[in-house]
Design a binder for these strands. Structure first.
Length: 692
RNA sequence: GCCAGCGUAGCUCAGUGGUAGAGCAACGGUUUUGUAAACCGUCGGUCGUCGGUUCAAUCCCGACCGCUGGCUCCA
């Protein structure tokens, strides 16, 4: 993220000087990229070119569409610039001079040009009065830039352009879209190669690829819809195991489970405050027609129809009966309108009839006629849980009340946002809402954090950070519910818990949820890729909006604080993460197929022995299968290994005679033969303890 | 939603302005096995959808749908 593009996050010159050596190399490489592009396309207009997490980019406006096929010749020019070993010279200028140079097209350019450097002009405007304005020059290329850079272009050890994307100028979708050229650079070739090796590994572990190979899930865009994954039996097995883990953990921690429907009336989300904030990312409402008159429908219809339709509307309006029978469905509606049209000449009757069927219902819908109930698919579970809280009178003795549910939510994510399981439109949340008194907050919140850490341990997540998102004064009443004192109080409480628990966290201002501060949990998979796994929030706003109360010791009614928490996030994203984390090689307890019995030969006694083992395993809820096909044992092993079956029991005549099982573990090979009972009891123990 | 690239069998991929192939998988046989692929055969595609250009389109053009990479968004 280019912080320089966001006024509220503008880096100070001091911050910039903290750039690491690697960031300087990359930032300098961005300048070299611009230099090269200008040699090829002198009219290029540059915007911003910062270092980013894995490299750098430069945003450029250019009539030529740069594609990866252009990379070799751009890289060729870049190499020349690096070989020339020009120094990066810092030049301090007065604002007037900078404006003048930008207008003459000199900034982000190799020389003066006929058109101004328009984006550089825009960048200049963002530099506050009093801050030093500097250029950096390498060879002929002069750029408005706060630096810092490496000493000379030759200090850029190894680089490569990686991809092209588009980006809005200053990240604002109202601004023009620029071409963003991405690249990466390292001190030397070895490190560059390692980086690309890591990318290869990530690609190999891609959850979409492994998910398909292992038969975990499919996304049936034609019949179900994009972003609506179907869990296949093997994927559902993982879902079930995660739920089991969550349910056990939450039960032990004093949670109670609830179950709520997938939709609710509009009133729910007006009350919660979600509708005004998030309407566009909720699925559009379903409208349930109540009894009533049709005249409102006709009005809505008039406004958008052409002449014939107008005519029909006039006719309808003129002679519509006062009393309209109840209409609950399209069938009712068509029937009613059909009867009504009988009084017209046949030709008109048919035209009206067809129109009414096709257009009136489909386009205008039944909205507006009489009272309409609008139902929304839930995009979050909290309001339903609030209503459960409200369902019974509550006393301080009931608190903390921890309502947990694996609730299915639906969010209308923008089409361009959908990514495999990582970003979906239907999601199963490991959700719970903790209603507590203010004095209980610290211990409850701390217990939630402890739960996170417990899970990290189970899944071998070693690197994580809690992003503590807080409000901002300027967002009060707009982005955030207008309760400045409550915000401060809550944020202070959360911060204190984080500090006391010595948990690894960073504070990020102005990114809170609208109803309270939140914590996003970022975790890194074993190959070092970052995932936003879970989020939990402190909510002082919704309990008020829903007028939730409990009777306190002193016989007064008080509003509880609500903690939203979802340590395992959603099944979709969490399993997506786990697939990449484990490269599909799940630990035994999570493995979709825990055991496959492979027989050598098909003598009846041998098959009986193998089947008895299968039955015993399944009796203990082990996900076991048997392969009694006539393939050679090597073929059976090959297929089981490819499917990443965790444990293979190879059963041949020798095993039958000695009452043993030859065990082979995926990725570890043949472990030899062990007495049957011992093998099974060890296996059961490993599953039970969720051993890695 | 925006920009760009892509869309051929269940999967991995060839291929052409004259209506398509391979390997694996699946299915049917034969084979009877000791730690990563036994053999033979069969089935399988309106080349994403719709429209246009053309005597002729899977191929060229357009729109739409979807996917991928970014941007914006993320309760």
């Amino acid at each position: 993220m280019d912080a320089a593009n966001r006024p509220e996050e503008r880096k100070t010159p001091d911050d910039r000087q903290k750039m690491t050596e690697l960031e300087r190399i990359r930032h300098s490489c961005a300048h070299v990229l611009a230099t090269a592009i200008l040699r090829l396309w002198p009219d290029a207009q540059f915007a911003a070119g910062p270092p980013v997490e894995n490299g750098f980019y430069y945003d450029v406006e250019l009539s030529h569409r740069i594609s990866p096929e252009d990379f070799p010749k751009i890289e060729e020019e870049m190499k020349k610039e690096i070989k020339a070993n020009h120094p990066f010279e810092k030049i301090v200028v007065a604002r007037e001079q900078a404006v003048k140079d930008a207008q003459s097209g000199r900034l982000g350019a190799l020389g003066a040009r006929s058109v101004p450097s328009r984006y550089k002009l825009g960048n200049l405007e963002d530099i506050p009065e009093g801050e030093q304005i500097t250029y950096y020059q390498n060879g002929d290329f002069i750029d408005l830039c706060a630096g810092p850079h490496v000493m000379r272009t030759g200090n850029i050890g190894a680089f490569k352009l990686t991809h092209v994307a588009s980006a809005y100028y200053k990240g604002d979708e109202k601004n023009p879209q620029l071409q963003r050229i991405y690249g990466t650079a390292f001190k030397n070739k070895t490190q560059l190669d390692e980086y690309f090796k890591m990318l290869e590994e990530a690609k190999r572990r891609d959850h979409r690829k492994i998910g398909a190979e292992m038969g975990l899930f499919v996304i049936d865009t034609e019949y179900v819809g994009p972003g609506l994954p179907l869990w296949l039996p093997k994927g559902a097995a993982i879902v079930e195991e995660l739920e089991k883990l969550a349910k056990e953990t939450e039960f032990a921690a004093g949670y109670v489970r609830v179950k709520t429907p997938h939709l609710a009336k509009e009133k729910m989300y007006l009350t919660s405050g979600h509708l005004p904030y998030y309407e566009e990312s909720m699925f559009p409402p379903m409208r349930l027609q109540a009894e009533g008159k049709l005249n409102v429908t006709i009005q809505g219809y008039e406004s958008q129809m052409d002449a014939l339709k107008q005519e029909m509307a006039e006719e309808l309006k003129k002679s519509l009966p006062d009393e309209v029978p109840p209409i609950h469905s399209q069938k009712d509606f068509v029937e009613f309108v059909g009867n009504f049209f009988r009084s017209f000449p046949r030709e008109k009757q048919m035209a009206f009839d067809a129109l009414s069927k096709v257009i009136l219902f489909n386009e205008v819908g039944m909205a507006g006629a009489g009272e309409v109930d609008r139902y929304y698919l839930k995009a979050m579970n909290c309001p339903h849980h609030h209503r459960i809280f409200a369902a019974e009178p509550r006393s301080y003795r009931d608190l903390p009340l921890r309502l947990a549910e694996y609730g299915t939510c639906y969010r209308y994510e923008q089409s361009g946002e959908l990514i495999g399981l990582m970003r979906v439109r239907s999601l199963n949340m490991n959700d719970a809402h903790i209603y507590c008194a203010p004095e209980q907050f610290a211990s409850e919140f701390n217990a939630v954090n402890e739960m996170y850490l417990k899970y990290f341990k189970i899944f071998g997540i070693e690197k994580y950070v809690m992003r503590f998102s807080t409000s901002s004064p300027q967002g009060m009443g707009k982005k955030y519910v207008n309760e400045p004192e409550l915000w401060k109080k809550t944020e202070d409480m959360v911060r204190q818990v984080l500090i006391d628990s010595k948990i690894n966290y960073v504070e990020v201002p102005n990114e809170a949820a609208f109803y309270g501060p939140k914590i996003d949990v970022q975790a890194w998979s074993v190959i070092g890729r970052e995932f936003s796994i879970a989020t939990n929030q402190v909510d002082f706003a919704q309990p008020r909006s829903f007028d939730l109360r409990y009777k306190d010791r002193d016989n007064t009614e008080k509003t509880p604080i609500c903690i939203h928490r979802a340590p395992l996030g959603t099944h979709e994203r969490f399993i997506g993460f786990l697939i990449e984390h484990y490269a599909g090689n799940f630990p035994l307890w999570l493995s979709p197929e825990q055991v496959r019995i492979l027989t050598i030969g098909d003598e009846p006694e041998l098959l009986d022995y193998a089947r008895a083992i299968l039955n015993e395993l399944r009796g203990h809820q082990v996900r076991a299968e048997i392969d009694i096909s006539t393939d050679k044992i090597n073929g059976k092993i090959q297929r089981a290994e490819q499917m990443k079956v965790h444990t293979m029991f190879v059963i041949g005549k020798r095993d039958l005679e000695a009452k043993v099982i030859s065990v082979r573990v995926h990725g570890r090979g043949n472990l030899g033969a062990t007495p049957r009972d011992e093998v099974i009891s060890t296996l059961l123990e490993q599953i039970k303890t969720r051993a890695a």
